[in-house]
């Protein structure tokens, strides 16, 4: 309906087209925000520059072979990152393998199957799990999980799958499997709660499309809901992975803290984050400190690469351009 009164008649009178007294406020606002943005960049740059400078002695002395040297020997000042990088990646991989199926199951149950009341309560409990301080999780790992692994899980695994190098050797309890499991416990709440949100945002029209061609409830989830949400789920996993790669306290308490590369999951290992936390206080020589800082940079780069892969995956798999509302 067109009214006689134009809407602008109800607004305060305009002050022409020239920049008025409000322009400077706009400018000041913009300048403040720009300053905030720039300061973040400067901060990151400063940290990086400092780290590189501090790591320089080690970088110069060991060169690129730092990355594939196994030996870490403070007494003779020989340092190589490989065992630590291996421990970091292997423990996170074990965590992923354990946590992703469970998290998906939890997310599907919460988003698709559980009655509303149950879902609310359970979601709360899952999020509570995320808020347990990692040192407490680590203590639980030492006193409950590790003995259980040593006495029950690992003997059973070596009896049935012992012919695999993965499950060979004596059961220690403390080791790579324990580290991976603790990390998995930290992953499940993050991955499942983010995945649940992702599944909830899958449009009803997608579910209906599947139902309408005769899908069962399971087929709807499997063929329509999960594929639609897969990029979000990958995002959730990567978010969690960012945490496990850098996780320190809980891991160092159960992984055994021995820098070695063993095919067996029962054997102890060491992660970069744990080594940094444990060894800084003992680093007496300059080259030792410098090597630790270079180790920190390796962790940083690993995290960056994981994030880059994640972004690429999300970009590759995103459902694109199809009309859906």
């Amino acid at each position: 309906m067109r009214s006689v009164l134009s809407p602008s008649a109800l607004l305060p009178p305009r002050s022409g087209l020239t920049r008025g007294h409000q322009a400077w406020r706009d400018g000041a606002f913009r300048a403040t925000l720009t300053a905030c943005g720039v300061s973040v960049i400067l901060l990151v740059a400063a940290v990086l520059v400092q780290l590189i400078a501090a790591a320089m002695p080690a970088i110069r002395q060991f060169g690129p072979s730092f990355l594939w040297t196994v030996r870490w020997d403070p007494v003779h000042s020989v340092f190589g990152a490989l065992t630590y990088a291996y421990g970091t990646l292997a423990s996170s991989l074990v965590a992923l393998i354990l946590a992703v199926p469970v998290s998906l199951g939890v997310a599907i149950y919460l988003a698709e199957i559980a009655p509303a009341g149950v879902s609310t309560v359970l979601s709360f409990v899952v999020e509570l799990l995320a808020s347990i301080p990692s040192v407490i999780l680590g203590l639980w790992g030492i006193f409950v999980m590790a003995p259980w692994l040593r006495n029950a899980v690992e003997p059973a695994l070596s009896r049935t799958l012992g012919w695999l190098p993965l499950f060979s050797g004596p059961p220690y309890g403390i080791g790579l499997l324990a580290g991976g499991m603790i990390l998995a416990i930290m992953l499940v709440p993050i991955v499942s709660s983010v995945s649940r949100e992702v599944l909830k945002t899958v449009p009803v029209t997608q579910r209906e499309a599947a139902y309408a061609i005769g899908a069962t409830r399971w087929e709807v989830i499997h063929r329509a809901v999960l594929p639609y949400g897969r990029t979000g789920i990958i995002g959730a996993v990567i978010l969690g992975l960012g945490r496990t790669l850098g996780e320190t306290m809980a891991v160092t308490m159960v992984i055994g803290n021995r820098p070695q590369i063993s095919p067996s999951l029962f054997q102890p290992a060491y992660t970069i984050a744990a080594a940094l936390a444990n060894e800084f206080s003992e680093a007496t020589t300059d080259i030792y400190v410098s090597a630790l800082i270079e180790l920190a940079m390796v962790l940083f780069v690993i995290t960056l690469i994981v994030n880059a892969i994640a972004r690429w995956l999300v970009w590759r798999l995103a459902p694109r351009g199809v009309v859906s509302a």
């Binding site: 309408a212 897969r230 199809v322 859906s324």
Partner: peptide
Amino acid sequence: VAVRRRVGMVFQRANPFPT
């Protein structure tokens, strides 16, 4: 499920599976 295989449906907005 068997009913829906015999009675199909087309919706207001196209809803193909985007993946």
